[in-house]
Amino acid sequence: MRTEPMGRRSGPSQQVVKQAINWVLRLRNHATHPTLHQQCEAWRATHPEHELAWQRVQSLHSELTSNLRAVPGAHIALETLENSARRLNRRQALKLLSGVALLGSAAWLGKDLGWQPWSADFATTIGERRGFQLPDGTRLELNTQSAADLDYTARQRLINLARGEIMVTCGRDPERPLLVRSRQGLFEGIEGRFVVRQDSDCTRLSVSSGRVVIRSHADSNGDPLQVNAGQSYLITSSTATVAPPLDMDAGAWADGLIVTRNMRLEDFLNEVGRYRRGYLNCAESIADLRLSGVFRLQDTDKLLAVLPRTLAVQIRYRTRWWVTVERPA
Rank of each mutant, 00 (worst) to 15 (best):
E284Q: 11
L265P: 06
T125W: 00
F295L: 08
G210N: 09
I126R: 00
I159F: 10
Y233Q: 06
D173K: 04
H50T: 05
Q231N: 13
L265V: 13
N83L: 13
T125P: 01
A74R: 09
R56V: 00
E165V: 01
Q58L: 07
G189T: 08
L234E: 09
T300E: 07
S66T: 10
L269M: 15
Q15G: 07
A162P: 00
Q19N: 07
A312T: 14
V272T: 06
L60W: 03
P328M: 13
T169Q: 03
R320Q: 15
R87P: 05
L304F: 06
H50K: 06
R309L: 08
R309K: 13
R176K: 14
L161Y: 02
I286V: 15
E271F: 04
S237L: 08
W253P: 01
R309P: 02
A93Q: 02
D255C: 07
H33C: 12
A252G: 04
D249Q: 12
L36K: 08
E271I: 11
R264S: 14
Q298M: 02
P34C: 11
S105H: 11
S66F: 08
G110H: 14
T260Y: 04
R264T: 15
N262C: 09
A45Y: 04
T80F: 10
S216D: 04
S84I: 11
P224T: 02
T300R: 04
A283I: 06
N143K: 00
I166R: 05
L109A: 07
R193V: 08
A101W: 00
